[in-house]
Simulated assay, not measured.
Amino acid sequence: VGLMAALSANLKSAAQVMVVDRHPDRLALAEQIGAIPIDDSKASPIDQINELTNGLGADRGCECVGYQAHDAQGVEHPNLTLNNLVHSVKFTGTIGVVGVFVPHDPGSPDKLYKAEGEVAFDYGLHWFKGQSMGTGQANVKAYNRQLCALIEQGKAKPSWIVSHELPLDQAPAGYQHFDARDDGWTKVVLHPNGSG
């Protein structure tokens, strides 16, 4: 989702696009489309973004992870990316949330999120900076024809993100690699007819 958000920002002529991740294969894909890869396992992404923006912060930020966000040590923090964005987006900047947040998560180690689907959000700083936020699921019907036209015209090539093509009977193994974030498994295309 984050890589496709970065591609979309480039298609909309963003002057500078930064992608925060810690997986080398995904950071390399970000760089392939002209985004600046930011490895959050090496240093604070907030510090790295502020350094790249001369302390101003990004004009816009997009939360693409959702409630399963976790730190570099693998510990889940449902509020991590939201609060990082509050700190790294400029005063009066905008935050879009396309990552999935559900009303409750029975598996979360965060008691607040597990019980009520709530996160400890840095609302004070968000308010102080005058940031705005939009959330929700993508309104696919509003964009699908326009996006298809960009692909047909050769302006958008989303296939760059596909790492594997597999026959349908290998779907469980492909999903397992993708879910484990194994190196090189970004997106898998499944072929129902068995050809891969």
Rank of each mutant, 00 (worst) to 15 (best):
Y123S: 11
D59V: 07
A69S: 12
T92P: 00
K111Y: 09
W127T: 14
V89E: 00
S108Y: 05
K129W: 03
Q73P: 13
D59G: 06
L82M: 12
G74L: 04
K129Y: 01
N84L: 12
Q131M: 13
H104F: 11
A69R: 06
H87R: 11
E63Q: 03
H87G: 06
P106E: 15
S108N: 01
H126N: 06
F128E: 09
I95C: 08
L112D: 09
Y113Q: 05
V102S: 13
E116Q: 14
F91E: 10
A69W: 09
G117C: 07
V89W: 03
A72Y: 11
G117L: 02
F101C: 04
G93E: 08
G107D: 15
G93L: 03
H87V: 00
L125A: 13
V75P: 02
V102G: 12
G107R: 10
Y123R: 02
D105R: 06
C62D: 03
Y67P: 00
A115L: 10
V86R: 14
G93Q: 07
L85H: 02
Q68C: 14
V75N: 15
E63K: 02
H70P: 00
V98R: 01
F91S: 08
E63S: 10
C64G: 10
L80P: 04
G130R: 02
E76A: 14
T92I: 09
S132W: 01
W127P: 01
G117T: 02
L82D: 08
S132Y: 03
R60P: 00
N79M: 15
K114P: 06
P103Y: 12
L85S: 03
M133H: 01
G134E: 09
V75L: 05
P78D: 09
G74F: 05
H77T: 05
H87S: 13
V97G: 05
G74H: 03
V97M: 03
N79W: 15
V119A: 12
L85M: 08
H104G: 08
H77Y: 03
G117V: 10
T92L: 06
K114A: 15
G124V: 12
